[in-house]
Computed example of a mutant assay.
Amino acid sequence: MKEEKNLTRREMREKILEERSREKGDFRRGKTISRHQKEHSERSENQKLVIRRRKLGAFFVILAIFISLISIFLFQFISKVSVVSNESKSQNLSKYEKSVEEYLNINPSERILSNLNKNALLGSLQKDYPEVLSISDIKFNGLTSYKIYLDFRKPVASWLVDGKEFFVDSEGVSFNVNNFEKPSLNIIDDSGAIVSNGKNVASSSFFSFIGKLVSAANKQGLEISKIRIPPLSLRQVEVSVKGVSYFARMSTADSAEGQIINFKKAIEYFGTHKISPNYIDLRIEGKGYYK
Results as ranks from 00 to 15, higher is better:
167 F>I: 01
144 T>V: 14
158 S>R: 07
117 N>T: 00
132 V>K: 00
169 D>S: 12
127 K>P: 03
141 N>G: 05
111 R>V: 13
118 K>Y: 00
138 I>F: 08
106 I>T: 15
125 L>H: 03
148 I>L: 12
102 E>A: 01
169 D>I: 14
170 S>W: 07
114 S>R: 14
125 L>W: 03
133 L>M: 11
137 D>W: 08
99 S>E: 15
123 G>H: 09
162 D>S: 08
150 L>I: 00
136 S>A: 09
119 N>H: 09
136 S>P: 08
119 N>V: 04
123 G>I: 09
158 S>N: 06
170 S>I: 15
128 D>A: 12
153 R>E: 06
123 G>P: 04
148 I>N: 08
169 D>T: 15
150 L>G: 02
124 S>Y: 12
99 S>F: 08
122 L>G: 01
133 L>D: 09
100 V>N: 13
167 F>E: 03
103 Y>P: 07
136 S>I: 06
118 K>M: 04
132 V>Y: 01
123 G>W: 09
105 N>G: 09
148 I>M: 11
105 N>K: 13
171 E>H: 12
108 P>Q: 12
145 S>H: 15
117 N>V: 00
109 S>N: 15
133 L>R: 08
148 I>F: 06
168 V>P: 07
112 I>M: 10
113 L>W: 01
113 L>F: 08
142 G>Y: 12
113 L>S: 07
138 I>Q: 10
149 Y>A: 03
109 S>L: 15
140 F>W: 00
99 S>Q: 09
102 E>T: 02
164 K>Y: 09
148 I>D: 05
150 L>R: 03
115 N>I: 02
156 V>C: 10
149 Y>W: 06
149 Y>F: 13
157 A>Y: 09
144 T>H: 14
119 N>P: 02
120 A>Q: 07
139 K>P: 00
167 F>T: 01
